[in-house]
Amino acid sequence: MTVDALLQSVPPLAVYGMVAAVVGVESLGIPLPGEIVLVSAALLSSRHELAVHPIGVGAAAVIGAVIGDSIGYAIGRRLGLPLFEKLGRRFPNHFGPAHVAFAERLFDRWGARAVFFGRFIALLRIFAGPLAGALKMRYARFLLANVSGALCWAGGTTALVYYAGLAAERWLTRFSWIALVIAVIGGVTAAVLLRERTSRAIAELDAEHADESGHTAA
């Protein structure tokens, strides 16, 4: 079976369901590659021989993001900041003290805008809902930022990748798969660079905490 035949055998609803599920679980607070799944599905939608539609991909991502963030908000509001202390002990690479401090600093500076912009930052995507709830942000403000952020992130990402895929096929018809792979690599590279920048900021906060702990001990 060829790759094209295999892709054509995948039901569109399965693609939409996968996008909604992965993005939703990531938004709930569990680290999953939501952005990579969204980009991959959007690339599939740019191939006209497949039944996957870009509007369906974008809508699935929005629904998953809004529902996942809302569930995360409810959990954070119920369990409060101690939730992150427990998660930090079990998953220090994702919920360590420096990660939480970085997210809290952004929330202090931006307020509800941190929920909106957090949709575009890998770290904040898993923190936005639970942390907004733990910090007792009003749900109406949270929901507005959540929905608008999900629409811009999911809609913008889907549209950008969809039209990039069309352009790749138009100009590189004989090498369309190479063009699609290049587009995926470009998207992943951008995400990795942004993640590294965030990691550096977290490392700086970690160093600050270590210095403060050293001064306190002295």
Rank of each mutant, 00 (worst) to 15 (best):
I30L: 15
V3M: 14
G80S: 08
D206G: 14
A164E: 00
F117A: 13
S9N: 11
R77G: 11
Y139D: 01
L81N: 02
I75P: 06
A145I: 03
V52I: 13
A201V: 00
G34Y: 11
A150Q: 09
R197K: 10
R125Q: 09
A41H: 03
A150I: 04
S27D: 10
D4G: 07
L144P: 01
L13S: 11
P12A: 14
E212Y: 05
R141T: 06
L7G: 07
S148L: 13
I36L: 12
R138V: 02
Y73N: 10
G149T: 12
L7F: 07
R138M: 06
V62S: 05
R89G: 15
V25T: 11
F120G: 10
L43W: 03
P12N: 08
R195M: 12
P11H: 12
E204P: 00
V37H: 00
I182Y: 00
F107Y: 06
I126F: 08
L7V: 08
A191L: 07
R200H: 14
I126S: 07
E49T: 14
R47Q: 15
G68W: 09
L166K: 05
V192C: 04
L180M: 11
G165W: 05
I36Q: 06
E104K: 15
D4I: 07
A201E: 14
L43K: 04
A164N: 05
L160Q: 01
L83K: 07
A41Q: 08
L87T: 06
A210D: 13
T2C: 02
S148R: 04
A98W: 07
A207G: 11
R105K: 15
I55R: 02
R170C: 01
D211L: 15
A112H: 04
P54T: 07
H215M: 15
Y162V: 01
T158W: 00
K136F: 09
R200T: 12
A164Y: 00
E212R: 14
R138T: 04
V19N: 02
F175D: 15
A201S: 11
H48T: 13
A179L: 03
R200S: 09
V23K: 07
A20D: 07
G149V: 14
S45T: 02
G34W: 09
L143N: 07
V3T: 14
V147S: 10
F142I: 09
P54E: 13
D69R: 06
R47Y: 00
V100T: 11
I55Q: 03
I55S: 03
L172D: 05
A61W: 00
F102Y: 10
G156F: 12
A122L: 14
V184R: 02
V10A: 03
A65Q: 03
A60Y: 02
S176C: 03
I202S: 01
L144R: 11
A167Q: 02
L81E: 09
F102R: 06
A65E: 05
L28D: 09
G88I: 05
V25D: 05
R113P: 02
G129N: 12
E196C: 06
K86M: 02
I178E: 08
F91W: 13
R47V: 12
R47F: 09
S70F: 03
L28Y: 14
T173W: 04
H209Y: 06
A179V: 08
